[in-house]
Each structure stands twice: as C-alpha cells, then as structure tokens.
Amino acid sequence: MLHTVNKSPFERNAFKACLARAKEGSVIVLFEDAVYAVTRGTTLEKIAVRAAEKFHVFVLGPDLNARGYDWGQVVEGVTVVDYDDFVDIVVTHGPVTAWL
C-alpha cells in the first residue's frame, strides 16, 4: 500500500492523518502543497524527520521546485522524485490510498 498526500500540513490534517495510519516501512509520496511537510526549518521539521525514519518518504520534485525549494532544502531521508519515478513507485508499491 502506497499513501499519497497533497495538502500543506499547515493548512490541513491530511499528512497527520496519513502518518497515523501508515505502517512502518510504508511508502508515502508528497506532492502539490504537501511538499511543505518536508522542507527544512519549519516548526514541523521533527515530524518530517521522524516520518522519514519510519517510512519511505518521497517528494515530487516539480512541485517542490515550483514552490521555490530544491532537493537540498528537504529533510534528510526524504527522496526527491519526478513524475516517472512516481509512476514506478505506484507500480511497485500500489494500491494507493490518497489522503485528501
């Protein structure tokens, strides 16, 4: 099972909802406004770091770049991917639960 989140953790609880039901080792893909969940220097950084330790966390590069961040500004343990990688991740780890 793969989990996706597309909401900023500062606005909605989707990331929190996902973390609460994902299992150790689960794969989580963050895209759209959810990329803010794993950028460095926020008050939620500790949650992101813990998530990256417990789960396999990926963040969509095009969404990250569009919002003024790059791979060097995401917390350690989070992997930046593109749309093709996103498809590969769904193929390998699907079905998908989208936390909206």
């Binding site: 099972m1 609460a20 909206l100």
Partner: peptide, 17 residues
Amino acid sequence: RLTMSDLIHSMDVVLGG
C-alpha cells in the same frame, strides 16, 4: 487505529474523500 490501518493495507482499491 491499528486495526483500521490493517484494514486499509489489506484493500485492493481505496476510494473516498
């Protein structure tokens, strides 16, 4: 919550909102 998590992870298709 743990059982809910197990339930979600045992599914083929998850829809909702």
